[in-house]
């Protein structure tokens, strides 16, 4: 058990180091930060002075080394573009993205799970077929198209929800939340729905397939043969089995949601990490891009680690094997 734990943690650290290096390599080919930092008519001397100050003239590995050492000491560097502390910039934008991910997950659970169950239990009804048809849109339409469509209908035409921003936010210590104000909730609905559209389709289809499969499995047939009511068969025996992999997948998708939010955030001018990332890419703001990539990688890895570490608790067979 302890061995399993140590092994996983070491693997995670190794992968994070690789991610850091890949991020660092990617950004070194991204573009010229000097173009942003220097006035268009700067002299060669001014240019060289800045290159030296930013250590851009040092060998790549040495730059990577000081970069990693800095991160380990909590020094994330300064943004080239805004000259702010990168750690503080990420911390400032994190609540918006986390809340967006959370609400979109909530929408997925509230809407997609019942819909998926319906489609799995009664696949031939008109409603089920309609749901399946509409859900194709969630996969085929790109996120930004869904976002723009929603804005056109609900903001411009109906005027129900704002087309951009986060509404009024309340500060709770280091965290800002829009979930305590009416305007905050109004603002989050469209982007959260846009972000949820892909997950919803995913969950509906997965649940449907699972249920249809479980519906034919032996223990369900046995339950039917015992004369249990149809409701009891589905809701006590079938759905519990089908829901387990779906919920696991949803947990893993949380990392995906954070990464996917770049597009959605840009459409709705949502002040989260995704917008920050895009603004940074536009101006080749290398320190921010690097930290963002490493941060998203770390989020993925941590969720993965948590899931893997919890496996032996869920499935005792794993515990026995590793012991």
């Amino acid at each position: 058990m302890i061995l399993h734990f140590v092994e996983r943690v070491l693997q995670t650290i190794l992968v994070l180091l690789v991610i850091s290096f890949v991020a660092f390599m990617l950004i070194s080919t991204l573009g010229d930060p000097l173009g942003v930092l220097l006035p268009p008519d700067a002299t060669i001397a001014e240019r060289n002075a800045l290159i030296a100050r930013l250590n851009l003239d040092q060998p790549l590995l040495q730059r990577f080394w000081s970069f990693v050492m800095g991160i380990l000491q909590g020094d994330f560097g300064l943004s080239y573009r805004t000259q702010q502390d990168v750690g503080a910039m990420i911390a400032e934008r994190l609540p918006a993205t986390v809340e967006l991910a959370f609400v979109s997950l909530l929408i997925t659970i509230v809407l997609a799970i019942p819909a998926g169950i319906l489609c799995g239990v009664k696949p031939k009804t008109l409603v089920s077929r309609a749901i399946m048809l509409v859900s194709i849109a969630g996969i085929t339409l790109p996120n930004f198209v869904i976002g723009i469509l929603l804005i056109a209908v609900f903001s411009v035409h109906l005027g129900w929800f704002p087309s951009f921003g986060r509404g009024t936010v309340v500060e709770l210590g280091n965290w800002t939340t829009g979930l305590l104000t009416v305007s905050g909730w109004q603002a989050i609905i469209l982007p959260a729905f846009t972000l949820a559209s892909f997950q919803m389709t995913f969950v509906i289809r997965m649940l449907r397939t699972q249920l249809m499969e479980v519906g034919h499995s032996e223990h369900i047939r046995f339950a039917r043969a015992r004369g249990l009511s149809e409701t009891r068969v589905w809701f006590v025996y079938a759905i519990r089995n089908a829901l387990l992999p779906t919920v696991t997948m949803l947990g893993l998708q949380l990392g995906n949601i954070i990464a996917f939010s770049v597009v959605t955030e840009s459409v709705f001018a949502w002040p989260g990490l995704g917008s920050l990332f895009l603004q940074s890419v536009q101006s080749a703001d290398i320190p921010v891009i690097a930290i963002y990539l490493i941060f998203v990688g770390a989020v993925y890895m941590l969720i993965n680690l948590a899931v893997e570490l919890s496996y032996p608790l869920i499935d005792p067979r794993l515990k026995r094997r590793s012991a």
Partner: peptide, 16 residues
């Protein structure tokens, strides 16, 4: 700051 041009136009049309 609204980076996306069509959102910017929408924000104007909706009166925000």
């Amino acid at each position: 700051v609204i980076a996306n041009p069509s959102t910017r136009v929408s924000a104007l049309m909706s009166g925000e």
